[in-house]
Amino acid sequence: MISPAAVARRAAPVLACIGLLAAWQVASLGLKNDSFPTALEAIRAVPDILGDKESLINILASLRRMAIGFGIAVLVSIPLGLLMGRSRAVASFFNPLLMVIYPVPKAALMPIIMLWLGVGEATKILVIFLGVSLPVIYHSFEGAKAVEEKMLWSGAAMGLSALQRLVRIVLPAALPEILTGCRTGLVLALITMITSEMIARQSGAGNILFNALDMGQYDTVYAMIIVVGAMGICLDAVFERVRAGLVRWSEPQFDMPLSFS
């Protein structure tokens, strides 16, 4: 037996999607602009993209870049953030550097990076890396800083060395905060991935989108936006599943889905 409240909760996101598509459809029919296809036309173009081998290879290449950039960023940023959170010396060394990088849109660095590394994979992966790193470093730092001193003392009394305390106490204790940073980082990875492909146009999902725009295939443009959006929602939903499983011990008994999926 499902309660009416549960039904309403399940139905709400579906209704929101239908409402948005309906508004799009009406606006498009009303405006009668060639560059603004209707929702139905855009949705009808989605299978064309996903059915095209060339497009699929491009999208998979994008995902690969994104995964590599995200992976390297997480592997570098978590240890760095944790060290900064537990050592004042490390924090005061890296803080000024990060403060400088933080407000700069990572895509704005693309021209310089392209001069060094060309328009290929390395450039795009580096930009994704930069985009993901900062939120992960920041949240790892905050998480590590908040670890209770007495918890570390308890570990030290059991015989854990400083490195063991960092890996086996600070890391798990800060994990909820770290994963919050990773979730932000994942969305930023998608954004920087598309942006980098729009600037260094060679292959990838961002390139398909802009090629379609150049050729006036507006339904493909909108369909591609839908595809990218769906990728983001799916990645976020999968990540949220994993995250919730890893930090169940810290979650308050809270039933409301915080995921936007």
């Binding site: 209770e148 007495k150 003392w153 308890s154 030290a156 009394a157 059991m158 015989g159 106490i169 810290s250």
Partner: peptide, 20 residues
């Protein structure tokens, strides 16, 4: 000179490992 397993602390704040 430092903490060791011969001296076991119990703190007011409990300081349990919440992930365990």
């Amino acid at each position: 000179t430092g903490p060791g397993p011969d001296r076991g602390p119990v703190f007011q704040e409990f300081a349990l490992f919440p992930w365990k």
